[in-house]
Amino acid sequence: MSEKKPPDWPAIEAEFRAGQLSNRMLGEKHGVGESLIRKKAKQGEWTKDLTDKVRQEVRTQLVRSAVRTSNASEREIIEQAGITGAEVVRTHRRDVRRASDLVGLLMGQLTSAAGIRADLEATVEELCKDDETGQREARLMKAISLPTHAGTIRDLSTALKNLVTLERQAHNLDELSSEETYEDRLARLMGAKE
């Protein structure tokens, strides 16, 4: 049986100070509990004082790689960043238009289904009259249910909102209004149910 290696606290401190990973993510990466990281950070008076510098360097590297030269002029860098940002916005506009069209289509289907609900239910009952378990009828009734369709519209709009927000943040098109890290924001948008 192999012995567990002790945590590499200098590496953990460096990554903590860089501010790119949440405490939970640091803990997972280094096999240490989040509470222990908080305790060590408090004892050692660690601060995430490099977060802004790291964020700025990431932006610089992204822009420089987009213009593919370290000797690019400020104007070339700004122009390339503008081109990239404009393309992101165009993509969002196209995606939002397609999603809006799909929501309109689904709303039309919901309106139609609501108007002929009794006929749909009768058709399902007729198709499933030989189904002894009732499972087939239950599945079909759920498929034509209004809450199922409304949930689809809600889920689609939520997913699109989250993806647009994350992509805009990844391209630095919006300023962060808080000290929330990218990982925290991603976790909040993608998984946290309120």
Rank of each mutant, 00 (worst) to 15 (best):
L163R: 05
T148S: 02
V32W: 08
R55F: 11
I77L: 06
T123S: 09
V32F: 05
T181V: 06
A143R: 05
L26W: 09
L173D: 07
F16V: 01
V58F: 14
R94W: 14
E167I: 07
R98F: 10
D8R: 10
V89N: 04
V96F: 00
S70Q: 03
T152G: 04
V164N: 00
A118P: 09
D184F: 12
A86S: 02
R68S: 14
L146N: 04
T181I: 04
K29V: 11
Y182K: 14
A159P: 08
V124R: 01
L140K: 00
P7C: 12
G191D: 15
A187M: 14
S100K: 10
K48T: 09
S22Y: 04
R154T: 10
E180Y: 12
H92N: 09
G134C: 11
V103N: 04
E167H: 05
K161N: 09
A86I: 08
M107H: 05
E3Q: 12
E57L: 10
I78F: 10
D52A: 03
L156R: 04
I77K: 08
E3L: 11
R139S: 02
M190W: 15
K29M: 12
L106N: 08
A187Q: 13
T165H: 00
S157A: 04
R64T: 03
R136A: 07
A18S: 02
E87A: 09
P7Q: 06
C128V: 13
Y182L: 15
L120Y: 03
V58I: 15
L105R: 06
S73T: 14
R17W: 02
N71S: 13
C128F: 12
T69E: 08
I153E: 00
A192V: 15
R139K: 04
W9Q: 04
E126Q: 08
D95S: 03
D52S: 06
D101M: 06
L62R: 00
R117M: 08
